[in-house]
Amino acid sequence: MFNDKNLEKFPLNRRQALKWGLVAGVGAVGSVLGVEALNRRSSSQVIIPPVQNSLSNTAVANPLAVLRDFDYGTVKQENGRTVREFRVEAHTSPIQLNRSTTFITWNLNGRVPGPTFRATEGDRIRVIFYNRAGHSHSLHFHGVHPPDMDGIKPVRNNTVMIYEFDAEPYGVHLYHCHIAPVTRHVGKGLYGMFIIDPPTPRPPADEMIMIMAGYDTNEDQKNELYAINGLPDYYMNHPIPIQQNQLIRLYVLNLIEFDPVVTFHLHANMFKVFRTGRTLEPSEETDVITMGTAERHILEFSFRYPGKFMFHPHQDAIAEAGCMGLFEVVGNAKA
């Protein structure tokens, strides 16, 4: 049903590649060759250990699939501009949060969180939003755009809204449904990350996203369960493999409703903070960062020692209700 899954999912965008001189001279030959060269070269720069995904590709909540999945859209050139076209459909589908809890999500393209839209500052963004989920919904983007693209107007069931605006400013942003009660529309899964890369790309890194969210499973306006990238405790049971001494770039978003704030903590390490991704230089180094709802940052770090290391909000009750996980640092082969 969805073509979105076939969209371009290059680990690096073309502009980054050009900057590093990886495809110099290849451009005119053809994009296929360029991409192959790009993949080969980039994998020698950024090491991502192989990942075993225990879930099927069609699972609505699939934290490992979401982790490093960036949707660059269908790229078109219109009037001399790069347009990135994204297609999303709102649906309803149940997910299994744990052995005893089934939860009906409202989701985009059959996944929670929704796709991570990614563009470079100055690109034109076009999001074709088709609501097939019964209630009225909308997509409200953070970032700068005109009022008619602000996504607070309800889009009725079985109708389409096309949001179009310039990608600005660079940083880590988000989008979410803005129909009241927003707590319910966000809590049921209508949200995702929206990354705008700076014109001068950031250095190569193993990039991943983490969205912390809550599940109010009994409609009591409190969260019973919490999750990172859709499922409670998933990364506790399936640690994320990362390479020793590899630069990791984490795009973190707190989208937990009802609880006003969480403090993201990484074990046995320090991370550099790029607040809202709005800078190219870090503003601080720490191992805890306090984030209100909808706050998001870029965190950069690398692990010196192989082994397993936890990450979680330091509101420990929230962590223990599903919002925690592990990195598994894979040692470099001895030279």
Binding site: T92, P94, T102, F103, G134, H135, N157, N158
Partner: peptide, 25 residues
């Protein structure tokens, strides 16, 4: 009816009516 249809679909999980709001809508 079109909207009722979508809402009813959003009310059922595991063969049970698990979302009362959508059932009532």
């Amino acid at each position: 009816l079109d909207t009722a249809n979508s809402e009813y679909g959003a009310a059922i999980a595991d063969g049970k009516i698990s979302q009362l709001i959508e059932y009532q809508d």
